[in-house]
Design a protein around this nucleic acid. Structure first.
Lengths: 213, 213
DNA sequence: TCCCGTTTAGTCAAACTTGACTACTTGCTT
DNA sequence: AAGCAAGTAGTCAAGTTTGACTAAACGGGA
């Protein structure tokens, strides 16, 4: 799963109706340019693609209210909402070691009911444990780990990372079970999009693309 | 940086002369199919591309010794070796939170002198610290972190991950400084490729592509 | 008022990735 | 002796990602 579709679907859904540039701005507001590869091209491409697949409905719109070429607005469809929820659930449970997908899923977890979020996260913890067991059993050669030489460090690194993630997920589950945050059906949701015209406090300052982290 | 080029360059380099299928097998031997997206198409594409760019030299070869279509063998060029070392150095120092690139870099770190590897890893630790400082300062709004709601969990997750990685890197530096592993110029290097005809103990068992982790 | 920089909005070609498919040989089985 | 599974080696079209580029409108100073 690529994070782009999830992010774009989620942004359009929260907005109700959004054009590409608005989505682009929301993602930046969420800091997504820091942890996902959400370039303009990818965003506009995802919008078009998902419109073609019936996940979004495209509305041709008048030549824009403030500069730039005419813009297309999108709304999420029934099918799009289903796909969105499916993606959130999948991203919350699966251990795919991709930071962007995980981060996006955390951002959207409150779109599910509290109990479901907890259950999915517990499933994730379970999967990490299984993955860990499989890796440590499978990749340690019969005649001892020394055989692997420095290659063993790769495995060590994976396991270390998995343990850290597991620990963090357990903490998150505790916080959620302790009543933190507002989940689906629990009243006013947290607003995570920029209103039209609102200034983005986390703007990039438009750094040059050749920036290297 | 994508991990594929680094992995392919490294494989060809260790082999001296290799055809695509051999590279494909080496990567599987290294477990790369588990942590990178090293599909056949990507590997053959990378080989062709890098040959076109002068990083590899292609030799047309006789119709193969054991089944299958005729194969092309590749050798690394001077420019390719430079690029390889550049990529390893970059991957060791930069904090790009991509598991595949990091893992590949660990696998190839012994191709550098010991002192350089240590220096690069220390640089990495430093960069993680800087990144952490920037993120915690920049993303905590003036009126307290509560403002962020559950979105703050994303930041918390990044920071947690960064700390885990920093801890692991410090451990690795200690092990290397303590004399572990054989680095460039220290005698017989660790052999990380499969000899022609040698069986791969870590073969995938050719699982179906629709496997989901 | 005219030019120039900025913001808004989006396009495009080139490169890369994916997963399924082709094609050829070996060796076992019936 | 024919058939066929398994292994070897690689191709291909469809889809995705990238980074640089286009283009329109606003703003403000000389």
């Amino acid at each position: 799963m690529s994070a782009i579709r999830l992010l774009v679907l989620g942004a359009v859904r929260q907005h109700g109706r959004a054009h590409g540039y608005q989505v682009r701005n929301d993602l930046e507001y969420w800091g997504a340019h820091e942890w996902s590869h959400a370039k303009p091209g990818s965003i506009y491409h995802a919008l078009k693609q998902m419109a073609k697949q019936g996940l979004l409905r495209a509305h041709e719109t008048a030549p824009s209210t403030a500069g730039g070429p005419p813009r297309t607005e999108y709304e999420i469809t029934e099918a799009g909402t289903e796909e969105f929820l499916r993606l959130v659930r999948e991203a919350l449970t699966s251990y795919d070691q991709k930071v962007d997908v995980k981060s996006a899923a955390i951002g959207f977890m409150v779109d599910l009911p509290r109990e479901e979020a907890v259950a999915l996260l517990k499933e994730r913890i379970e999967r990490i444990a299984q993955w860990r067991a499989a890796v440590t059993e499978h990749y340690v050669p019969a005649d001892g780990p020394e055989q692997l030489g420095h290659i063993g460090e790769i495995m060590h690194f994976w396991v270390h990372t998995a343990d850290a993630e597991s620990a963090w997920t357990r903490g998150l589950v505790e916080r959620i079970e302790g009543g933190a945050y507002t989940f689906a059906g629990e009243g006013e949701p947290f607003v995570g999009v920029l209103a039209d015209g609102q200034e983005n406090p986390y703007a990039t300052g438009d750094r040059h693309p050749q920036d290297d982290h």
